[in-house]
Amino acid sequence: MPRRTVAKLATVSAVVAASVLAVAPSAHADLVTYCVGTGGAVTVPNDLYVPAGESCALTGTTITGNVSVAAGGNLVVTGGTVSGEVRVASNGYLDATDTTIGGQVVLAAGGYGAFLKDARTGAITVRPKGSTTIDSFLFVEESTVTGNVNVQAGEVRLDRGTQVERNVSSTGTYYTDVHDSFVDGSLSVLNSSTGSVVCGSAVRGLATFSGNLGGVQLGPNGTLDSCASGGYWGRDVSVTNTTGGVTVDDNIIDGQLTVTSNNPAAQVAANNRIRGGVTGEQAGAGAARAARTAAPADREEAGEQRAQTRRTSAVQEAVAAGDARL
Rank of each mutant, 00 (worst) to 15 (best):
P2T: 09
T5F: 07
L9G: 14
A10C: 08
A10Y: 04
A14F: 12
V15H: 10
A17R: 10
A17K: 08
V20L: 13
L21P: 06
V23G: 14
A24L: 10
D30M: 06
D30Q: 14
D30N: 11
V36R: 07
V36I: 15
G40N: 12
D47G: 00
Y49E: 05
V50Y: 11
A52C: 01
L58C: 11
G60N: 09
I63D: 02
V69A: 08
A70M: 01
A71D: 13
L75K: 02
L75I: 01
V77C: 06
T78D: 15
G79W: 01
G80V: 09
S83N: 11
V88T: 01
A89R: 05
G92D: 08
G92V: 01
L94Q: 09
D95R: 06
A96S: 12
I101N: 01
Q104K: 15
V105F: 03
V106M: 02
V106P: 02
V106F: 10
A108H: 03
A108K: 01
A108S: 12
Y112C: 00
G113C: 10
G113N: 09
G113Q: 04
A119H: 03
R120Y: 02
T121C: 11
G122A: 03
I124M: 12
T125V: 13
T125F: 08
R127D: 15
R127T: 09
S131Y: 08
L138K: 04
F139P: 01
E142K: 15
S143C: 08
S143I: 02
T144C: 04
N148C: 00
V149Q: 01
N150S: 15
V151D: 07
Q152M: 13
R157V: 14
D159Q: 11
S169L: 09
S169W: 08
T173P: 02
T173G: 12
Y175R: 12
D177V: 07
D177S: 11
V178A: 09
S181P: 07
V183C: 04
G185Q: 05
S186Q: 13
L187H: 00
L187S: 07
S188M: 12
S196Y: 03
V197M: 04
V198A: 14
G200N: 15
G205W: 00
G205R: 00
F209V: 06
L213W: 02
L218A: 06
G219C: 12
P220K: 14
P220S: 12
C227P: 03
G230T: 03
G234F: 07
V237E: 04
V248N: 00
N251F: 05
N251M: 04
I252D: 12
I253N: 00
L257T: 05
L257S: 07
V259A: 05
V259T: 01
N262K: 07
N263W: 02
P264F: 08
A266G: 04
N272D: 14
R273F: 07
T279L: 14
A285Q: 12
A287W: 09
A288I: 03
R289T: 14
T293L: 13
A294D: 13
A294C: 00
A294K: 05
P296Y: 04
D298R: 09
A302Y: 06
Q305N: 13
R306A: 15
R311F: 05
S313I: 09
A314V: 05
Q316Y: 04
V319S: 05
G322M: 07
R325L: 13
L326W: 15
